[in-house]
Design a protein around this nucleic acid. Structure first.
Lengths: 225, 225
DNA sequence: GGATTGTGTTAAGAGTTTTTTAACACTTTT
DNA sequence: AAAAGTGTTAAAAAACTCTTAACACAATCC
């Protein structure tokens, strides 16, 4: 089975967004789409190989969005815009844009440019989870919160990963025991409490104003978003 | 010592060619130049990292030249041209052009685009890794730290290379065992510790004031930058 | 050939970090 | 208010790592 490349379209104009969806599907890509930058940031958790980003977005500016997108994961970004101003263009390149296509653009040229940037991107898709201000990199075993790196032990890391993977869902204690502890005789109930406590402490140290892990009485824990 | 990136300028207009030479030298690149496609084919060798190709060349057509250049070595090619015709543009992309900039172009935009395409290419070719004050030459099996040559055994070399290739990311012990030891029955856990210890010693001897390899408990090691 | 040098592995003890346990205070539910 | 569950802390226990030293083996050099 061939894995299709995933392209995320970020475009507020409904007609253009739908046109692009159609164009890229025809060209054999898996397409995701968003109508705003904030929406895009949510979707970007998934496996995205390239982003087509329109500049004229309601809410956040294109500059902010490209910065945050690149922070999460370094995927190629092709900016499309009606703005021909050179300073804008150069700013975006500086922030990490990989290409800049002026609207109205030729569809085939866009496809050609997409191809170029997909080809160059050899990045093995590192599975990075991002919820709130927490970044968890499963491959690199790295966690940061509020921009600060935090050090988690292996068990703490596994617990947080599980909770984040099931964000907004309750992860039962038995699931946690099963997946975190390999041994048959699972650990004491209290052991889990201690680990949760330590994780909360470390997160609180990085960002005191936010609560991440919610206790679901007698059932388990939930990562709040 | 930092190795400069080599850019080959192919442009028949003397003024533009010289202007580009100056621009790119200023930007910190090593510059080679040709006034025709055939001349470019002679110059093009292993050391060229990117080509700026003008379309309006005497003799061979741009299409032919890009094909032959890419045959020699697949380096990124940025086409510059006064031609705005879309079919020409698409043809060139099809033949392997990585970007197409219409003349007259903005110098800073060209530099930005050069940066994009050089960045994408870094993974594959360069056999020399440089992080902090360590230079590791995969071809020559040579390592220097703080200006001093240091002698690593083959296994030590492979370990350090892996860590440097995945700089700032944790390299798990299982990855190390897989990639450093070919045999099915991988070495003892402790064997790895001993090798790491020896590498750390040799690096410390060359530069006592720096820490390079970080231990990630129960997971693996990480080269810190 | 025999000595020398260098490499790779194993073993052992010291050292470090993580995990668990236990105790007690606290919170929620009934 | 009692019962059940949770949070936090400190200390013991377990797991893991680091270093040193010893040994086997291979390559190199008189």
């Amino acid at each position: 089975m061939v894995k299709l490349k995933n392209i995320l379209i970020v475009e507020d104009d409904k007609d253009i967004n739908e046109m692009l969806q159609e164009l890229l599907k025809q060209a054999g890509y898996d397409v995701k789409y968003a109508y705003s930058g904030t929406e895009a940031l949510l979707i970007h958790n998934d496996k995205i190989d390239l982003i087509i980003l329109d500049l004229m977005l309601p809410g956040k500016s294109g500059e902010e969005i490209i910065k945050e997108l690149k922070d999460i994961k370094d995927v190629p970004v092709i900016v499309t815009s009606a703005i021909t101003d050179m300073d804008t263009k150069l700013d975006l390149f500086k922030l990490g844009a990989n290409d800049y296509v002026t609207k109205p653009f030729n569809n085939d040229e866009l496809l050609a440019r997409i191809k170029v940037h997909l080809k160059n991107n050899t990045n093995s898709d590192s599975s990075i989870l991002k919820i709130k201000d927490i970044l968890l990199d499963s491959n690199g075993f790295k966690v940061s919160c509020n921009g600060k790196d935090i050090n988690l032990s292996k068990i703490e890391f596994e617990i947080l990963k599980l909770l984040m993977q099931n964000c907004n869902q309750v992860v039962t204690k038995s699931v946690l025991f099963d997946k975190v502890w390999d041994t048959v005789d699972s650990a004491d109930e209290n052991t889990l409490n201690v680990h949760i406590s330590k994780i909360r402490n470390k997160l609180k140290k990085a960002n005191p104003s936010e609560e991440y892990i919610e206790t679901i009485w007698s059932i388990g824990y939930k990562f709040k978003n």
